[in-house]
Each structure stands twice: as C-alpha cells, then as structure tokens.
C-alpha cells in the first residue's frame, strides 16, 4: 500500500503557489514554469487553486506580518503528506527585505520548509529542478521509513538503504520520457 501511495505522489504532485508578500518576480517565474516553454504539466505537475488539493506549497516572498497567519492557515489546510518549497532568496532568508519592520525572515519563520530554492528571482529551471530533487528526497525518506518498519534488522545492522531496497524494473516510468528537454532534466525516477 505504501508503495502505491508513494508512486502516486511522486508521479503527479500538485502545487499550490502562495504569494506571501513577494515582489512578483518569483511569482511570474513560478507561473512561467507551467507555460509552454517549460511546461511542467507534462510531468503531471499541476497548479491547483485550493490548498485542499495540493501536495506541494510553493511559497514566495519574505512573509509580511499580514500574510503570516494566512500562510499558516493555508499550510494547515493542506492534507498530509505535504511538502513546502521556499522559492526565492527572500522566501529563504528575507533577502533584501531583511530587517523591514513589516516582514518576517522568510517562510521558515512561520512554517517548516523542506526545500529552499535561492535566486532573485528563482528561474523556472531552478524551480523544476528543486521540485524533482525534493520528490526524490522525500521518496527516499518514505522508503526508508517503511523499510525500517518492515525489516528493522537491516537498518540496525547498518546496511546502506540503497542496497537493501530491491531494484525494480523500469516498467512504470515510460510515459513522460519522450518529450524533448529544454533546460530541465528528467525527474529522477524514484525507486519504489
């Protein structure tokens, strides 16, 4: 069961984009990633309009005091498991708005963040790369957790997780592979 969930999650993560007081630069670049040039929709990544449908929250901006409670509420409304990407320098650290009286210092001041993508603004390539890496990473974690549940002895003995996971044939990951690439790499297939 866990495998199926992982597989489904990794294949088509739906993102929710939330502007927490950014300058628009990171927002237009995030939306740009959905447009024909970069077209992340061919990997099944879709922009969703409500937090209740989203798997990944892409938050931009240094988080203004006005947006902080809203950001928290949107985060709480997302169903588990959820991932958070802080897109842009100011989402990561506050950036140029560091020390402004109405700003927090980045998204992680308010909610936990799983991935930081720097850049002012982050380019669509960087964003796609970030999402892919994040999925690979979270896939591995979930895998390790399940493994630890099932076969505690392997993990305890210190066998590297990679070796302990049985290799799978490539059967289930051919659909997205034929589109010509521009800028972005293929999402790293996550072993299930």
């Amino acid at each position: 069961m866990g495998r199926i969930i992982d597989w489904a999650r990794n294949r088509s993560p739906w993102i929710l984009h939330l502007n927490c007081g950014s300058c628009n630069g990171c927002d237009i670049e995030t939306i740009d990633a959905l447009m024909p040039r970069y077209d992340i929709e061919r990997f099944g990544i879709q922009q969703k309009d409500t937090p209740r449908h989203a798997d990944i929250l892409v938050a931009t901006g240094p988080v203004t005091e006005q947006m902080a409670p809203r950001l928290k509420r949107v985060y709480e409304q997302m169903p588990e498991p959820k991932l958070v990407i802080a897109a842009g320098s100011c989402a990561s650290t506050g950036g140029v708005f560091y020390d402004c009286y109405n700003c927090r210092e980045g998204i992680d001041d308010v909610i936990p963040v799983d991935m930081y993508i720097p850049g002012c603004p982050t380019s669509p390539e960087a964003l796609i790369d970030g999402i892919v890496k994040l999925l690979a990473e979270s896939g591995k974690e979930a895998q390790a957790e399940r493994l630890a549940e099932k076969k505690p002895e392997i993990v305890e003995e210190g066998t590297p997780i990679d070796e302990a996971v049985p290799k799978e044939p490539d059967a289930d990951r051919t659909e997205t592979d034929d589109a010509p690439q521009e800028g972005a790499d293929e999402p790293e297939p996550v072993e299930v």
Partner: peptide
C-alpha cells in the same frame, strides 16, 4: 490591499 506591505519606504 495591504497584504504585500513590506515597509520599503522606511527601509
């Protein structure tokens, strides 16, 4: 409209 107010004029 103030959700994006960052205080740039002060900074």
């Amino acid at each position: 409209l103030s959700y994006n107010h960052r205080g740039i004029e002060q900074a």
